[in-house]
């Protein structure tokens, strides 16, 4: 038997595979296909203080080895999550983390406070990196002072696992990671989507209603790996890697680069069973290489 469990800040995960926010709904969407309690952690859809309608259709463009989305944090608000969703998921044996987003620091703080009251939710992922909303979102994650202020204020009210999700749309992601760590983040997840654009030449129009959107899928994997590697070199808190993971080999690459856990996002759209396949694939890899624990390969890249 190999030990797949990992410690992630204040969290203990049964394995290092998590789902990325906005790609796995509330988890229940996938119950016909897999036993979602096998997953190490589920990051639920981006949640804001108030209901958001999101951006107009079209919100998605398929691109080479990836896709652009401009959903714009459509969600029914934190109270809806607390009243309608949490009772449904609370007995499922995995770590549910709520991805929290906001337009102002106060929005983030109030939303985090409300989720802090939920006994069964062991953590939040602070989304300071959504590229698809005009106000807030990525704006917080692209400068050190604003990233520092939102993490500092949320840290004051939120006592459990505080994971902070970084934007790749910055000049130096290491600077942001260090600031976030200094303000008390328990872990850092990266990368959110890369800002991109698609054009319909025949119509001479942008494909997305918002013109620009967030790129995800295998196309971003080399960028994500590089950033995870850079950040893992300098921070002491655990790093959660994501960006274009389609299979176990991709996930292992992130672990080797220094990620203590990974998140699977876009791949869920193509194979709703991919999370379980990745968990099994990591286990098979560890056995094949005679490792007794997944901890043995975290940051084990030989350079």
């Amino acid at each position: 038997m190999v030990d797949l469990s990992v410690k992630l800040g204040k969290l203990q995960l049964k394995n290092p595979v998590m789902t990325a926010s906005g790609t796995f709904g509330y988890g229940t969407e996938y119950c016909d296909f897999i036993d979602i309690s096998r997953i190490g952690g589920i990051i639920v859809k981006g949640t804001t203080l108030r209901r958001r309608e999101g951006n107009p259709y079209p919100r998605m463009a398929e691109t080479p080895s990836g896709m652009l989305n401009a959903v714009g944090l459509q969600n029914k608000g934190v109270d809806y999550f607390i009243e309608k969703i949490n009772p449904v998921i609370k007995d499922i044996d995995t770590n549910f983390l709520v991805n929290v987003s906001g337009s102002t620091v106060d929005d983030y703080v109030i939303t985090a406070e409300k989720i802090n009251e939920l006994d069964n939710i062991p953590g939040i992922e602070l989304n300071i990196s959504c590229p698809n909303v005009k106000e807030g979102g990525m704006a917080f994650g692209t400068s050190c002072p604003s990233a520092a202020s939102v993490v500092r204020e949320v840290r004051k009210v939120y006592k459990k696992e505080l994971m902070v999700k970084l934007s790749p749309n910055v000049t130096n992601i290491v600077d942001i990671a260090q600031v976030v760590e200094a303000e008390g983040a328990d872990s850092i997840s990266l990368i959110n989507t890369l800002l991109g654009m698609a054009v319909d030449a025949e119509k001479r129009k942008p494909v997305l209603s918002t013109i620009t959107g967030g790129l995800s899928g295998p196309a971003v994997k080399p960028v994500a790996l590089r950033m995870v590697w850079q950040v893992a070199q300098v921070v002491k808190v655990p790093v959660v890697g994501m960006g274009g993971i389609m299979n176990a080999t991709d996930a292992i690459e992130f672990l080797l680069a220094g990620a203590s856990a990974v998140q699977i996002g876009t791949a869920n759209f193509i194979d709703p069973t991919v999370t379980v396949k990745v968990i099994e694939g990591i286990e098979e890899y560890l056995k094949r290489h005679n490792f007794s624990s997944v901890q043995d390969i975290i940051g084990a890249l030989e350079v």
Partner: peptide, 16 residues
Amino acid sequence: NTMACGIGACLCCVTD
């Protein structure tokens, strides 16, 4: 509408 997941997770195929 164009879709990604088809199962209500990605929220890409919305209509108003």
